[in-house]
């Protein structure tokens, strides 16, 4: 079942069309990476899904219920974590969660139990000071706690790690990985290593449309198996190989790189026939970053 379904979404700001017929779906219990460069339309899509921004055309459905701009009833089942969450500075973490719980219609007992559990999860259980004195990382962790308080079916995280230092980022990613079991996460970012670490599926948004979509393995295999590097023991053999296989490129330290792995058997056969000493054969993993760069290059 799809927790979030975006259908033919269009949105322009002035003359600039940010979303052009955007469609995708987020299946239940997945961490869905929503990738794109700055200004690609990630936040715009999320704000429309939250009913705080009106779409020009198209629809967004949360658990098959259509999102309405203004008073989105679908927000009952959504938790939202923005890049830099802001709070009422004069409240403590516990008071803020109580306020959020009351807004969500939870009863006192539920709020107390859930707040305690979540503050423990995000490491703020012993924090008694007001939010005013919180670091950015602490605010972000409190943001996760408030977003998960009412056990949402969908957690929308809009670049939650972009403003954090490496430690804060690590902590937040660990928390998001941990909550994967109880909710579905839509996670927008332009930090691709974050996506590789925690996402099950990924969509690359480029020029207002989904350019690539699928599980990380699917995407990687659809875009080839990565390159192969060969380290030779004899530098004299370089020219021979390069002449015979023009698709090989010269690298550092007696290394040749083969961008098309399907040529590998032929290259190895040639190396064996010519008795060229081969020290190392290494298959390079294709990274999401390479795919992302390739995708946006192709779209330009």
């Amino acid at each position: 079942m799809d927790v979030l379904r975006v259908e033919n979404l269009k949105k322009s700001f002035g003359k600039k069309q940010v979303l052009k017929n955007l469609s995708f779906a987020v299946p239940e219990h997945t961490v869905y990476g929503f990738v794109g460069r700055n200004g690609a339309g990630k936040s715009t899509t999320m704000k429309i899904a939250l009913g705080i921004l009106a779409a020009d055309e198209g629809s967004v459905y949360v658990l098959d219920e259509k999102v309405k701009y203004g008073n989105a009833k679908t927000n009952r089942v959504i938790g939202y974590l923005p890049d830099v969450p802001e709070y009422y500075d004069y409240m403590t973490a516990g008071e803020y969660l109580r306020f959020c719980g009351q807004l969500s219609g939870m009863n006192k007992k539920e709020i107390r139990e859930r707040s305690g559990k979540l503050l423990e999860l995000v490491g703020l259980a012993d924090e008694k000071k007001r939010v005013k004195g919180f670091s950015r990382g602490m605010k972000q962790r409190l943001g996760v706690a408030q977003a998960l308080l009412h056990k949402p079916k969908l957690l929308i995280c809009d670049e939650p790690t972009s403003a954090l230092d490496p430690l804060g980022r690590r902590e937040l990613l660990d928390i998001l990985s941990a909550v994967k079991e109880e909710t579905t996460v839509l996670f927008s970012t332009h930090i691709l290593s974050d996506v590789e670490q925690i996402c099950d599926r990924v969509a690359v948004l480029e020029q207002g449309e989904i350019a690539v979509e699928g599980t990380i393995d699917e995407i990687k295999s659809a875009h080839g198996d990565g390159n192969v590097s060969l380290t030779l023991g004899n530098a004299d053999a370089f020219d021979k190989l390069l002449t015979r296989f023009p698709e090989l490129t010269r690298g550092m330290h007696h290394t040749l790189t083969l961008a098309q792995p399907d040529q590998l058997p032929a290259v190895l056969r040639y190396i064996a026939d010519e008795n060229i000493p081969l020290i190392r054969l290494e298959r390079g993993e294709v990274s999401l970053e390479d795919l992302f760069l390739e995708t946006i290059k192709g779209e330009r």
């Binding site: 939250l50 009913g51 705080i52 203004g70 008073n71 989105a72 009833k73 927000n75 009952r76 959504i78 939202y80 923005p82 969450p85 802001e86 709070y87 009422y88 959020c100 807004l103 969500s104 219609g105 408030q146 009412h150």
Partner: peptide
């Protein structure tokens, strides 16, 4: 300015 209205609205509080 701080964007806290968004939190209240996204928690289902009617505007």
């Amino acid at each position: 300015k701080s964007g806290v209205f968004v939190f209240a609205v996204t928690r289902g509080l009617r505007r």
